[in-house]
Design a protein around this nucleic acid. Structure first.
Lengths: 206, 206
DNA sequence: CTTGAATTTGACTAAATGGTCAACTATACT
DNA sequence: AGTATAGTTGACCATTTAGTCAAATTCAAG
């Protein structure tokens, strides 16, 4: 009973949009409310604190944004290394779209917030760490699958996984900082070399 | 004439210490003053705004921290690839030291602040971009030198430089996020593979 | 068309924020 | 020793901040 409302979702969307642009600490409850077209009284009807909203926003972002994209690209239906290529391509495309639309290149929301370190509340920090671990897991599975298929030639697969993931996050972070997708281009080929995998459009070794 | 004081330096040090821990936006003028043992009136005697202090702090950090470390490791007296190894080793050592001392693993101050994006004032942002460009330049020179010495075997040296730098920043960022130097270990060997350089302690190919 | 729970509102607070200022103090230099 | 100059202080200000609340409104369901 009672009326229904999408204010909660609007608040979450606003929080993610503003946090993407400005970072966690720089975003105020007032700004979120204004952006969502919601009065502050309503904010505290839905969330007991700014931290609670942020935690919900991160979880929502994971479930409805990040996770579906990862699930699609990293589907076990795709060949292991192809999963990486699909994911990188999609990321690049989304960045280019944002740029063309005149918006800021965001990179990975949770990675950026995680970088603010002890500046974020503990509950938010925990949600972030969980999401980041889950994200890295996609890389691990794909690369391990590639290794089992004999497509990876490195002395230490685990070390290569870590490096590939670092390279990916580093390039994404740099794209955010420079507000330009450029660090993402060619990332797939670089990861292939890191994994000791065959280059696709290269002559086979004599 | 008049008296002398190191309050300015204390403020800069405090700013860098707190910003490293909490990020840019989460650090307040009051906190900086308290940490530096300086009254707010004095703060504004030395700096006309929080942004001005931050800009000065970043430049100071570059000149007295980052740059000397880079100049030492990346000295042209060292063999090109050895420069990278020295730099990574030093970074790792400093992170371990901090951890043992019970302090937070910081990563790269300016990279973290840069990640906060539009949340920082324009003058600070510009100082950051300048520093970051200079830092990347050390990588470029070292890897180009290695390429000229025939130690790099990749189709596109520039792309490899970018990837090596992304890998480095990504690993450093992850170390900060996890508050643990672990992502740094083995980074040198991974960069070598990225560059198509010979592994040091590996059997030569049959 | 009533009812009552869900939602909305705006005015409110206390604390924190960045910043100002005039008076005060110490001291390096002559 | 005298004094100009650099440095210090604490009180003060306007604004912004997160968070509160009781009253008003809406509307799904009986």
């Amino acid at each position: 009973m009672g009326r229904v409302s999408d204010a909660r979702e609007r608040l979450i969307d606003a929080a993610n949009e503003l946090t993407g642009k400005l970072g966690y600490s720089a975003v105020t409850v007032d700004a979120i409310c204004e952006h969502a077209g919601v009065k502050k009284g309503s904010f505290y009807h839905y969330f007991e604190s700014k931290a609670a909203l942020s935690k919900a926003a991160i979880e929502e972002w994971w479930e409805t944004n990040s996770r579906p994209i990862l699930d699609t690209a990293f589907s076990v239906s795709n060949p292991p290394l192809e999963r990486l290529r699909l994911y990188f391509d999609g990321l690049y495309q989304r960045m280019v779209d944002r740029k063309l639309r005149g918006e800021r290149v965001i990179g990975c929301l949770v990675f950026s917030v995680a970088m603010e370190g002890s500046g974020v509340d503990r509950e938010v920090e925990e949600a972030i760490q969980r999401v980041l671990k889950r994200k890295r897991h996609y890389f691990e599975v794909a690369i391990r699958d590639a290794a089992e298929a004999g497509q990876v030639h490195v002395p230490d697969v685990e070390a290569a996984v870590q490096a590939a993931y670092s390279l990916f996050e580093g390039a994404t972070a740099r794209a955010r900082i420079q507000n330009d997708p450029e660090p993402i281009v060619g990332m797939y080929e670089q990861v292939l070399r890191l994994l000791g995998a065959e280059q696709p459009a290269e002559r086979k070794r004599a």
